[in-house]
Write a protein that binds this DNA or RNA. Structure first.
Ligand code: SF4
Ligand code: SF4
Lengths: 159, 159
DNA sequence: CTAGTCAAGAGTAATTTAGTCGGAGATAGA
DNA sequence: TCTATCTCCGACTAAATTACTCTTGACTAG
């Protein structure tokens, strides 16, 4: 189906939390640790730990002083962390179909003669754009961002 | 992850096939059976059978003369069958998160205090619109439809 | 030195998806 | 009438993915 995994959900939740924890632009960002986030959101600590580690590996967050008082901090500005990036960090390259990009490594046998592929790739691309259009910063606002999806048929008036 | 299931893929493939089999507007539409489609696309007959049955139950296709020479025909015009409809028929109501619509029956414990929910619902809605914007007819064209996704931030200049 | 923390990988359990089987009903054509 | 071919349905098994756990190690503030 078309659903986020729990890990993805956890990741976004955690990022939102970390981001909000380190306020607007206050220079000394607060360092927040795994346990804190996990307890706040009732998620299994061990699992969240893995998720955060993955995010750290992708430089989306950074770990600070690796001992007591240690924890994580955003790796870049909230507005520069898009949902698409988070998802890809957690679940690898996201593809609606088995035949992701133009490259070979996809599994489907037919590919070339598949009449359905091109349209689906379009959709995939659109979804990606969509996901890349919302950032952590957007999620911080009470009023969530306005996303307009416009779908034009080929014969569309749009020239 | 964010991927179509095989069944969904099969469904779309089959629909594309059925649609193309019954030509443009020729009134006596050709009846095509499960086996034919399955062999054409190297998919397990039994499984495709189930998929088609499901589609039939949702009136997306219709079964004709239930014996030899029997098979399926589109239930309505290709342009009136959207990808979203097909997906929902196959996999039930599609939701990016565990907390689909405003209703209760979602599983997540937090919900109300979740800071991440509203934005995600927006995204979900956008994806739905997107998926609802492409029809089987669109997939029939060699040149697939043009889909434009425009993502505007709240403070966007666009007024 | 030690308690608290991140890092990494292997291992297990739960859930979902994919695919199979067997039996029932319908009907076109011989 | 009989039979081969097809849809229909539900239960079943198998495979794959996802969710979660455990263990071990390394680092460091106090
Ligand atoms: S069937 Fe067509 S679309 Fe589905 S995976 Fe194979 S190639 Fe891509
Ligand atoms: S966490 Fe927030 S977003 Fe994710 S499911 Fe629960 S409520 Fe919906």
């Amino acid at each position: 189906m078309l659903k986020f995994s729990k890990k993805a959900d956890y990741a976004l939740l955690a990022l939102q939390y970390i981001a909000s924890a380190q306020g607007g632009g206050a220079l000394p960002p607060r360092v927040v640790n795994t346990k804190e986030i996990a307890e706040e959101h009732f998620m299994p600590v061990e699992l969240l730990a893995k998720v955060l580690q993955t995010l750290a590996r992708h430089q989306i967050i950074e770990s600070h002083h690796n001992g007591p008082k240690g924890g994580y901090v955003l790796g870049r500005e909230p507005k520069d962390i898009t949902i698409a990036q988070v998802l890809e960090a957690i679940e690898g390259p996201l593809g609606i179909t088995d035949c992701y990009h133009e490259k070979e490594e996809s599994s489907c046998d037919q590919m070339d003669r598949c009449n359905i592929r091109t349209p689906l790739l379009k959709i995939q691309e659109s979804i990606y754009t969509l996901l890349n259009g919302m950032s952590i910063e957007d999620m911080l606002r009470d009023e969530s961002p306005l996303i307009i999806v416009e779908s034009l048929k080929p014969q569309g008036v749009h020239s």
